Simulated scan of single mutants.
Amino acid sequence: MRLFDILSVLYEPVNSLDNHEHLLSYVQPKLNEDGTCPILKEAGDEYDLRQYADSPEQYENLLDLVTRLNRLVRWIHLKTDVMWFGIYLSHGNKLVKYVYNGEMSKAEFPIAPEYLDKSINTRVIMEKQHYYIPDVTKHDGPYYRCDAKVKSELCCPIFDPEGDVIGIFDCEDYRENFFDEKIDFIRTKVKKAIEIFLEDHPYITYMGYSHFNPDAYNPTA
Rank of each mutant, 00 (worst) to 15 (best):
R2V: 08
I6F: 03
L7G: 06
L10K: 04
E12N: 11
P13M: 05
N15R: 04
N15W: 02
D18K: 13
D18Q: 10
N19F: 04
H22I: 09
H22V: 10
L24A: 00
S25D: 03
Y26I: 04
N32V: 02
E33D: 14
C37V: 14
P38N: 08
K41F: 06
E42P: 01
Y47F: 15
D48A: 03
D48H: 09
A53P: 11
A53G: 10
Y59L: 14
L62I: 05
L65C: 07
T67H: 03
L69H: 01
L69N: 04
L78K: 15
I87M: 08
Y88G: 00
L89T: 01
G92Y: 01
L95V: 03
Y98L: 10
Y100G: 12
N101P: 01
M104E: 08
M104F: 10
S105V: 09
S105C: 10
F109Y: 15
I111C: 03
Y115F: 15
Y115H: 10
K118R: 11
S119V: 05
N121E: 12
T122L: 04
V124W: 02
I125F: 04
I125P: 04
M126R: 11
I133V: 15
I133P: 06
D135R: 11
K138L: 14
H139S: 08
G141T: 07
P142S: 08
C146M: 13
A148Q: 14
S152Y: 02
L154K: 07
C155N: 13
P157R: 04
D160G: 13
E162M: 14
G167N: 00
F169Q: 01
C171V: 10
E172Y: 02
E176A: 09
F179H: 01
E181Y: 09
I183A: 11
F185V: 00
K189R: 08
K191T: 08
A193Q: 04
F197S: 07
F197I: 06
E199C: 12
I204Q: 06
T205L: 09
T205A: 08
Y206R: 13
S210K: 15
P214K: 04
P219R: 01
A221I: 11
A221K: 10
